[in-house]
Design a protein around this nucleic acid. Structure first.
Length: 266
DNA sequence: AATTCCTCCTGATAGC
DNA sequence: TGCTATCAGGAGGAAT
């Protein structure tokens, strides 16, 4: 669920709430395999008595720079992750997996109901991105039309599969790939090889437009343009263009929603 | 190289 | 009420 636009909103939320405050104490809440082998003690020692100084985002990963050249905290949100900054007397949110207690009595909670996210540390953003084999961020200015065309050329398989492949382009998941395909009029199983150059260019423009529009809407479905399928993407949702019932098909191991009238295989 | 299937996790929901 | 099955869909790994 948290895809590029959601994580961008989390980033801006951290920027507005959690920077430059001394971390007095760190608490972990049943993180189990979310620490990828790290001990709770390691997590505490890397954060306590320091502060978060800046943030970056790459694809679906959020990075927070730890003051004193102590590297970066890396958060991945899985399907149910989120962040919440709150006053001391409000009580910890449910499913808090990592909690930073700041000097000013406020707290930052990283919550994740299903624990499919992760907490890690990295020496630098580049080092982490490289180690994980992540592709270029979908909104990286360096991913221009030519670079995108190059990435999409010579690939077998579906458009959806390429968009969702984090080692090709980082940031797009099931929901936003559905929206991009809907805006393109492409079926979830449409093959990349069936797209000619002008359509690839259109895909690049559509991808960027959809992601930027979602960020501008603060990922609030009520604020998305009327022409977007995202708010209708569920069991008995209707196509915003024609009112027809959306269909569901399994594609790239996920449930893809699409309008059978507007989305074709090529 | 790409896709399918399985696993990790938990909560919401539907059906009996 | 309570049990069971299914779905949500990020990502890694194995099999195809």
């Amino acid at each position: 669920m948290p895809e590029l636009p959601d994580v961008q909103v989390f980033k801006e939320y951290l920027d507005a709430t959690s920077l430059h405050q001394r971390i007095e104490h760190v608490r972990l809440g049943d993180p189990r395999r979310m620490l990828e082998g790290m001990s709770a003690k390691t997590v505490r020692s890397r954060l306590e008595a320091r502060a978060l100084e800046s943030t970056r985002r790459h694809g679906k990963h959020l990075f927070a720079e730890i003051g004193g050249d102590a590297g970066w905290l890396v958060l991945h949100f899985g399907m149910t992750g989120g962040v919440q900054y709150y006053e001391g007397n409000e009580g910890e949110p449910d499913f808090t997996r990592l909690r930073l207690d700041f000097h000013n009595g406020r707290h930052l909670a990283f919550t994740d109901t299903r624990k499919l996210g992760s907490i890690a540390f990295a020496e630098s953003v580049e080092e982490y991105v490289d180690a994980k084999g992540l592709g270029i961020d979908a909104l990286d200015p360096a991913l221009d039309k030519d670079a995108f065309r190059e990435l999409m050329t010579g690939r077998a398989g579906s458009v959806k599969g390429a968009l969702m492949n984090q080692s090709v382009i980082a940031g797009i998941g099931n929901e936003y790939s559905d929206e991009i395909l809907f805006q393109m009029g492409l079926h979830p199983k449409a093959k990349l090889a069936d797209l000619r150059e002008p359509r690839i260019d259109e895909l690049w423009r559509t991808m960027r437009r959809v992601l930027r529009t979602a960020i501008r809407a603060r990922v609030d479905t009520a604020r998305l343009p009327r022409s977007y399928v995202l708010p209708h993407r569920h069991g008995d949702g209707k196509c915003p263009k024609c009112g027809r019932r959306l269909e569901r098909v399994s594609a790239v191991g996920r449930s893809a929603y699409y309008c059978p009238r507007h989305q074709k295989k090529r």
